[in-house]
Amino acid sequence: MSVLVILEQRGELKPCAFEAAWAAGRIARAAGMPLHAVYLGPALPGAEQLSGLGIAVVHAFEDASLAHYTSDAYVPLVTGLARELNATVLIGSASALGKELCASVAAQLDVELAQDVLELGWDAGLTARKPIYAGKVLADLRVSSVPAMASLRPNVVAVVRDESPVPEIVRHPVPASAPRIAVKEVTQAPPGTIELTEAKRVVSGGRGIMGPENWPVLKSLCDALGAALGASRAAVDAGWIHHSHQVGQTGKVVSPDLYVACGISGAIQHQAGMRPARIIVAINKDAQANIFNVCDYGIVGDLFEIVPLLTEEIRKVQS
């Protein structure tokens, strides 16, 4: 009996790996079970980063062939380890790759999985809270299969470390395999780019930015805030920005502390993506825009006037 957490890496351990480990640690304590972790990738970067999370053992599958995720290579290793450890609970991250991995492992183990959960709990079994209907409803679930599986949405828990030591590292051999899937190319955003779903601050632009030549206006604000750049579907559909920036029901769900919506009307499908934000600021020249009904602070005004003033004011208070 144990709780097993999957640690996601992209060269470095990802923030969502620590978040999942922290959440799994709380389950392990409540259930009175040891917490094990599994790592797949090139050489495990710095095990000392994993102290304070209550992890007893890290099972490391270290091999250059595991640098990039493929279901072919990852699924059998995680499935095998979960069986070997007789895991009662298996927790992963609801990242793009993490969701695919968890779904595939759940199928191989023939168990249920609560995907993209916001909270995890233990009440004589695994409980989880997850958004349904594109975030318009919250469901409190009980997962009763053994193991019970869940994937935690990135950026929704605050990791608080305790005194627990650096975990023991157990290195497992990586069997040679003939993967069917070949990773031909990996395109990474330039270093320093903040990923929307992981960002603590997001600035988004909509049809109100009038054209792609005006993104620098918002990008300056992003730089001042250390924010990621988002967009409405109208801006994406107009071809002004890649759809990976889209926030909303058919885009990304973001959960920053601060969301600044510029020239966005506040359609229900856009709200689906910004709802988890702690504070929403809206800048729109139309006082009747719906965004003002779903924001915390609103400024009625021309974004081309307000946003540069805001950028300047933020720079001023920061220096």
Partner: peptide, 12 residues
Amino acid sequence: REIEGGSYTLEV
């Protein structure tokens, strides 16, 4: 296929 902040090109 999309990943956070990038993409993979895969042959399957």
